[in-house]
């Protein structure tokens, strides 16, 4: 896992730095400052950009480990503070969506299997097709228009109260719900087909025990692995949803920083996202190993 995180630091740093645009010149261009040699040199000096790249990486990594992502070009304030405080908003939005996804798709998915609903299957298949094709930001606006403007139930925009978080979280979740209903349904049906379920039935084991102990437990590993991927997707999706609902999360900050070529922000952001992603996957592996004893033998590297 540490190796993976180290890989992420490499990407975060070099990806941004290897892009053939000089951040300093870009900065001047964008802010309409007069480009003079001295001015550029001054900024370079200030940001340590005149040192060798590898040296810069070492320095950046040392600081990053201590949660110091450098200074913003734009505001001259530390990036980490701003990034982390906004990130907590995004994380909250993504987490809310995450639980909505699990709750709704779990209930419908399990219900459709237990009740043998062919109708649910056809319905979710159509829903997957539809939601996969709709841009989430557009869906957000449609929901705002219908729920907030027409019905006047939920607040329009903003962030902070529970009511304000319902629509964005739901919008974000909606794209994943049909997918998870299908995932849960098909993997449960697959699990039910397994011979050991037939043997459990042959022993007269209660249907509720079969569903809980055998079928649901059996689909957990696949579910965990999928959810880890979804966590990353939700964070990315949150950045868009924030723009729709005017939520002061990291997405907006990122877009503003991009406009200003504030590469320290970009580096810090990728580092956080990548690290989180690695951690999510590690957690998923860990949970899989807890559920499935056979997975324990293969894994176990940190």
């Amino acid at each position: 896992m540490l190796a993976a995180i180290w890989g992420v630091t490499l990407v975060s740093f070099f990806l941004i730095r290897l892009i053939p645009v000089d951040p300093v010149e870009a900065y001047f261009a964008i802010n309409n400052l007069p480009v003079t040699e001295e001015a550029i040199e001054e900024i370079r000096e200030e940001q340590g950009l005149n040192k060798p790249l590898l040296f810069q990486y070492g320095l950046w990594l040392m600081n990053a480990v201590q949660l110091d992502f450098g200074q913003s070009f734009l505001t001259k304030t530390p990036v980490a503070e701003e990034l982390l405080s906004r990130f907590s908003v995004t994380l909250g939005l993504a987490a809310a969506a995450f639980f909505i996804v699990i709750a709704i798709s779990g209930i419908i998915g399990i219900w459709s299997v237990v009740k043998q609903g062919g109708l649910v299957d056809r319905f979710t298949r159509a829903l997957v097709f539809a939601t996969a094709s709709m841009p989430s930001f557009w869906l957000g606006f449609v929901l705002v228009y219908v729920v907030s403007l027409k019905w006047g139930i939920l607040p329009l925009m903003g962030w902070g109260t529970i009511e304000q978080s319902v629509l964005p979280a739901f919008t974000l979740a909606l794209g994943y719900i049909p997918y998870y209903i299908r995932l849960i349904r098909t993997s449960m049906l697959e699990e039910i087909e397994k011979p050991h379920i037939a043997f459990a039935r042959a022993r007269g084991v209660k249907e509720s025990i079969i569903i809980r102990r055998h079928v649901l437990k059996g689909i957990l590993p696949a579910l965990f692995t999928s959810l880890a991927m979804t966590c990353g997707g939700l964070l990315g999706g949150a950045a868009i949803i924030e723009a729709v609902f005017a939520i002061p999360g990291v997405g907006r900050y990122l877009v503003e920083s991009m406009a200003a070529r504030d590469y320290a922000v970009l580096q810090g952001f990728i580092l956080i996202i990548g690290t989180l992603y690695v951690i999510f996957n590690f957690l998923a592996d860990l949970l899989c190993a807890i559920v499935d004893p056979r997975a324990r033998l293969k894994r176990g590297d940190i």
Binding site: P195, H196, F199, R213, G218
Partner: peptide, 24 residues
């Protein structure tokens, strides 16, 4: 039938390796 299975009539199925849930 569920009440009969396992209690009145029991079945030992073919291929024991596949008949136990590997995670239980």
């Amino acid at each position: 039938m569920r009440h009969l299975r396992g209690k009145e009539i029991s079945l030992i199925m073919q291929n024991p390796m596949a008949m136990f849930n590997p995670i239980v």
